[in-house]
Design a protein around this nucleic acid. Sequence first.
DNA 1: GCGTTTCGACGAAACGCTTCGACTGTCGCA
DNA 2: TGCGACAGTCGAAGCGTTTCGTCGAAACGC
Lengths: 346, 346
Amino acid sequence: MATMQDVARLAGVSVSTVSYVLTGVRPVSEATRRRVQTAMETLGYQRNALARGLASRRSHMLALLFPAIERGLSGTALEFVTSAAETARRHGNHLVLWPTAADGEAETRDLLRQGLVDGVVVMEVKLHDVRVAELQRGDTPFTLIGRTADPDGLPYADIDFDATVRAALDHLTGLGHRHIGLLSHSRASLRAGYGPTVRVLAAFEREARERGLLTAVRHCDETADAGRAAVADLLGERPDLTALVTLNDNATFGAVAQIVDGGRRIPGDVSVLSIVSSPQVGALSHPRLTTMAAPGDRLGRLGVESLLAQIEGSAAAVAAGASTLHELIPCRLDVGATTGPAPTTS
Amino acid sequence: MATMQDVARLAGVSVSTVSYVLTGVRPVSEATRRRVQTAMETLGYQRNALARGLASRRSHMLALLFPAIERGLSGTALEFVTSAAETARRHGNHLVLWPTAADGEAETRDLLRQGLVDGVVVMEVKLHDVRVAELQRGDTPFTLIGRTADPDGLPYADIDFDATVRAALDHLTGLGHRHIGLLSHSRASLRAGYGPTVRVLAAFEREARERGLLTAVRHCDETADAGRAAVADLLGERPDLTALVTLNDNATFGAVAQIVDGGRRIPGDVSVLSIVSSPQVGALSHPRLTTMAAPGDRLGRLGVESLLAQIEGSAAAVAAGASTLHELIPCRLDVGATTGPAPTTS
DNA sequence: GCGTTTCGACGAAACGCTTCGACTGTCGCA
DNA sequence: TGCGACAGTCGAAGCGTTTCGTCGAAACGC
């Protein structure tokens, strides 16, 4: 592969001049610039990423820290990863994948110390996240997708669970529902402090209280069968429930099946609204689920862009007390055929 | 961050000795080794990845080349990516994501010339793939997930579509079905030379012919609605079809709905078997789909491991005419509730 | 007791780039 | 006319490793 030396020789200039053409940090005459550019083209020259990184202390690489994904289909996760990678590339950066244990504190530290990346995007942040703690101890810029329990000082982009739950309840109460269930993730997920589980639950209970709704909550594993069982139990105990908000793609499908098998119609008797999901998943159900779509691509883009801004501005920004990213994006409602007016009975 | 200098100073040895302790390329006395190791631990030393890569011409980074994913849910794709990243990490390598256009020839070339990665894993290989052609021109090791039209000289791991289709037809003919439809990807996908589409079609037609089955094929877009329409059309034309093999997750759900809405029972009247899918997706359907699971994780692991073997052995292997990876893995049958005995009518 | 290995360690030269200091002209302005 | 400023370029010193040649001392064979 051609090196900068080769380009310099061919263009009849010094190596540093070639570098200045590339980086633009010092002026170069138009004539010289053209000669250098021609030389680069004929040689098909590309800067060696390693050497550049070593010399400039900017590797133009970002890491995506994600714990092994076990949660359901995670069409959203893929969307997120793709969008993050594309955004990074669009800005001339590389995205490297760091699959680590959720409690991979030492693991994370060792990776950081390799000095490979300029910054880190953390996925699947938990309320008390040791990886985040580790990052705060170091001086590598990072952004969170999700939030810790007390994220005020930290740059993050997350789903606006409050707004999402509010919109969900607006939609359902607008249809006359007053007795609404929540089918959430597993209890383990709640105990582990998984953000979406915790925040949706809190928002649901608060909003329902404020609106004077009757509610019931069930946690269940991420399988259709678990969803079935949970809903069977739920409807057994609360037969006059008329709507169900779900936060668990796989379980939702079991829930729908169970409701129908139990002799109730959707949405005639019970409405189902799946949040933090996607229309594509919704379309798999028949009738098509009403969903609220997780903004995976926007989160990916935002996370990476804010990280890059942080890296660029580093010194300047820190001095100026830069406004760190605090972005909350609600899920988008896509009305399908599983939500409708509440039955008009007693 | 601590450098090798720091370690050397603290241990009272030269930098090269520290390096030899780390690489093991030259012998180091037990006493010295221990001193160095202690020094590294107290400093929390990790080798700088960039400098190491530059000096040794081995970056320990692999690229995953994937075109923007549009195909369906792609739970499989995520599984694959995760498995590839984990395998890379287990072997002390980093996986970087290169989202490129499927026809990103120049794009691929430029990325390669940055000399960032030791090797490349190519996803979603098409029968005539310009990215592969580009790779063949260069000398960066690579492996394909999927195959080109004529992959004999190339290292690849792919789904064994022949065996998969055979197993699917074994399952169905074993249940007495003789008139079987195939619901495949879009026609565009076929024209683009997307491996799974082309190879499943070929295998299906060949196998059916050899077994003397009646068949019908429909192509449709990756949506439930398209699946519905296609199946409506198909059953209209072939009312005595008793089984349907599907290669299109999203469309499958539409297909199932359409069959039921059309007044036929599953599997009483029509059996449905979704191939290159997964039990998790199958579980979303009610009744649970019989599926054949794409071996996403095995492909990810195999691809990366074979790539690493190629890189390690590079010189040696090439000289010895190393056996390149030619691995075909069939999908695994998971019998659900959508396949059953063929109806015993005329 | 004198060459000859062998073992363990060292110093210095890469690797391919960025960046800093310095040098040469040119131009504008007092 | 003289001087500072500035555009444009160069050479050399890093960046943190690996790797090659070398060298002293201990071990060996005869």
